[in-house]
Amino acid sequence: MILGLDLSRSAVRVWQRNRDVFLRLWKTESWPPFLEAFITLVAFGFGMGAYVALGGEDYIVFLAPGLIAQSAFFGATFETTFGSFFRMDSQGTFDAILATPLSVEDIVVGEILWGATRGVISATALLVAVWIFGLTESPFAVGMIPVAFLAGMVFAAIGLCFTALAPSINAFNYFFSLYFTPSLFFGGVFFPLDRLPDWVRTLAWWIPMTHASNLSRSLNRGALGLDALVDLLYLLAATIAFGWIAITLMRRRLVN
């Protein structure tokens, strides 16, 4: 019992279940997100990059670490929104698991760990492509993989909070308008945030995506200063906060 939570290592069982399903379907499941990120990199990096000057840095070098963080965002988010919602709602998988010794906490933590794993898989695939293109600038770039996992936990937990609240699959429209799209455009992936109006910049600072892309960029440049530490602490705190909220909401949803 931690903070009134009934957590156990059985959370791994939920992760294993999702892994088994993924390994069965990976040929159809894992390519589309990778290809999408890769196409974005080529199109924006080379296409738009030809018209953009960013204080001496090639636009594609600026963009690549942001896209790596964003592919973790996509991987984790889709897993714990549509993926978890189907498991919870139409398949009854969570109910089946709850009839075994596992608790709601175990399920939530297992789903978050799995969402983060999906984020790492997507981010790693793209990192390899970026490395082959010669766009990595420091050995610290490999640190983007653990960052993808940590940020993936935040993204997965936030997705799961919405899943616990969603009355039906249509409710995810709100999730995409209010959270997903702002994260996509104001999360520091496609352009630096420093020339935005102050109030937009303040809002953008609170978006988890911002810290994931900033931290990835710092690692790619090998520039690890106070900013990177703040990003790291933000992501750690957000993991705990959103993980706890997800557990609370999921308990309300599943236990009655």
């Binding site: 399903v21 069965r24 398949q91 009854g92 998988t93 109910d95 089946a96």
Partner: peptide, 12 residues
Amino acid sequence: VVPQESNLDPDL
């Protein structure tokens, strides 16, 4: 437990 509504895992 054999629940009222089938919750076998269709992914497996």
